[in-house]
Amino acid sequence: MIELRGLTKRFGDATAVDDLTCTFRPGVVTGFLGPNGAGKTTTMLMTLGLQRPTAGTAHVDGRRYRDLPVPMREVGALLDARAVHASRSGRNHLLALALSNGLPRRRVGEVLELVGLAAVASKAAGTYSLGMSQRLGIAGALLGDPPVLLFDEPVNGLDPSGIAWVRTLMRDLAAEGRTVVVSSHLMSEMEQTADHLVVIGKGRLIADTSLAGFLAERSSSEVLVRAAGAGFADTLRAAGATVAEHVSGELLVTGIDAYAVGKLALASGTVLTELAPRRSSLEEVFMAMTAESVEFSGGASR
């Protein structure tokens, strides 16, 4: 379990993380979401003791990270997958990490097998593809078999089969009762992986909720209706719905659900040629929610 309390980081005038309070719980995959520059990485760096908070605390199972006696047995982290000396072999990179925490040498071989890098373990890490580097970083995080795992953008650079592999791994790790935090700036990644979401924008907490709750609360559900003959829009409006009429004859209905639309059609004797509930995707909700807090945006697209 990771607990952030009032965590704040300022770099001069810029506030990267702003009074962030939240808890990452065990047994679930928590998606840590935010646009680029939202403060996800800075939050992770402070949690790992690599950067000093301006204010507030980050605790792992009730202790500061630097007070953990054997850190790699408590927390495994993947930060930047490319942060490996290019001419050191993957195996030696992992061996140095393992030895520094007094972990047995056999763990190196075990995690290399687990991530599928055993065949290239003796090659220089600089020759690895981005996907292989991600696997090496994940191997490093798993060395100490820790109950808490932090992954910063772990699927970056992975091919579809790699992405599927990471998703399965995350879910398996959480199912074993571990705390799994996965940061991403892509909401779509999280729809299939995360159980819980912590969303930040400009360093501030925007949402801390279950994935289902997030969708239910935040997404506006619309119903797309196409009716034979005119006048149905007024019928819907009379029933309290908000209707947007398109030139193509499409009606976008909000305020009442598809069942109510169907009942109104039956009552008024209207033939519906199309009736489709439309739920905004997680991506759309996320975009709408973080629109004001996007650090850099192309002016026209807003």
């Binding site: 760096l45 790992l48 003791g49 690599l50 990270y65 630097r66 953990l68 850190p71 790699m72 927390v75 982290a77 930060l79 930047d80 490319r82 942060a83 490996v84 000396h85 290019a86 990179h93 140095a96 990490l97 520094s100 925490n101 490093g140």
Partner: peptide, 18 residues
Amino acid sequence: SSEFASGSIRPSLAAVPV
């Protein structure tokens, strides 16, 4: 300096936070 150049200083210090 090689650890700073490659960025491996972060995993190194995450492993040895003191």
